[in-house]
């Protein structure tokens, strides 16, 4: 079988799992979970350094020496302007010119602001970033982001951290059908069933943090999610049967013994 690789911004990827680095019970568990996930892309946030503490709480000290690609996000931004500022700070680290545009205007749902997200994407593409906007699951909006130059588009399955799964599989399927760039389902997934469903809908990858980090056993869950991604992907490539209303016997009905 041909190696199933994909590309973002000219960079070849083998794993279809982008894993977040927040909320893990300890750096050790996080490291092990990342290893089990097989992920090549790690997400981060940018925050002010806590000047009251002398301890190094930078996430980078726990992942150094390994060959990951970094995807910082613009979380905390509620406007395009703020997201652009955070993106520039992230790039100034010298670690990555990839940026996940994340602009929330509602504290309770953290749902992305589509207009500001499009605006920020346009600006950051012009500045030479590899832009991966996190957005709502609207097919037209996703198309608009692609046309603005997004390297991949990342519609949410459900609000961040809810674990509700794919609320609108019809939309996700439609987004995939229309897209010419990779579609990554980002946020709202909860279980391997959700992940397999996303992959069977044909998305190129999934981005998860909470469902792994907050599982009872994050390391076990990281592995379970990796297998679900592989399984769902293989199912998508292999082509599932169509749904029928009535039964069809597995052995045919012509040569029954009892007739």
């Amino acid at each position: 079988m041909k190696k199933d690789v994909w590309h973002i911004g000219g960079h070849e990827l083998t794993s279809r799992f982008f894993i977040g680095t927040g909320l893990f019970p300890s750096p050790y568990v996080q490291k092990e979970a990342i290893r089990e996930s097989g992920a090549e892309v790690l997400t981060f946030a940018i925050r002010r350094i806590n000047l009251a503490s002398t301890e190094d709480d930078s996430i980078l000290q726990h992942v150094e020496g390994e060959s990951f690609r970094f995807l910082p996000n613009t979380s905390g931004a509620s406007t395009a302007e703020e997201a652009v500022r955070i993106a520039r700070l992230a790039r100034a680290s010298g670690l990555s010119d990839w940026i996940k545009v994340e602009i929330s205007a509602n504290e309770r749902t953290l749902l992305p602001d589509p207009l500001e997200t499009l605006k920020a994407t346009e600006i950051l593409v012009k500045e030479g970033f590899t832009v991966l906007p996190y957005t709502s699951d609207d097919p037209i909006l996703c198309k608009r982001l692609e046309e603005a130059g997004a390297a991949a588009v990342m519609p949410g399955a459900a609000p961040i951290g809810t674990g509700l799964g794919i609320l609108n599989p019809y939309n996700i399927g439609l987004i995939v059908e229309e897209a010419k760039v990779p579609i990554i389902v980002d946020a709202g997934l909860g279980s391997v069933a959700d992940v397999a469903q996303a992959m069977e809908l044909g998305v190129s990858g999934v981005l998860m943090n909470t469902p792994v980090a907050k599982a009872k056993d994050p390391v076990g869950m990281a592995r379970a999610m990796r297998l679900a991604i592989e399984s769902g992907r293989l199912s998508y490539l292999s082509g599932r049967i169509s749904k029928k209303r009535y039964a069809s016997a597995s052995s045919g009905q012509e040569q029954f013994i009892v007739k």
Partner: peptide
């Protein structure tokens, strides 16, 4: 943004707003 190679030369002014940021865990 002040890149590392500018830190030694870049002079600060009274009441200048300075942000010191880094990567933390996030999704």
């Amino acid at each position: 943004i002040i890149t590392k190679d500018q830190w030694l030369d870049m002079e600060v002014r009274p009441l200048m707003k300075i942000e010191l940021v880094h990567f933390v865990g996030g999704g």
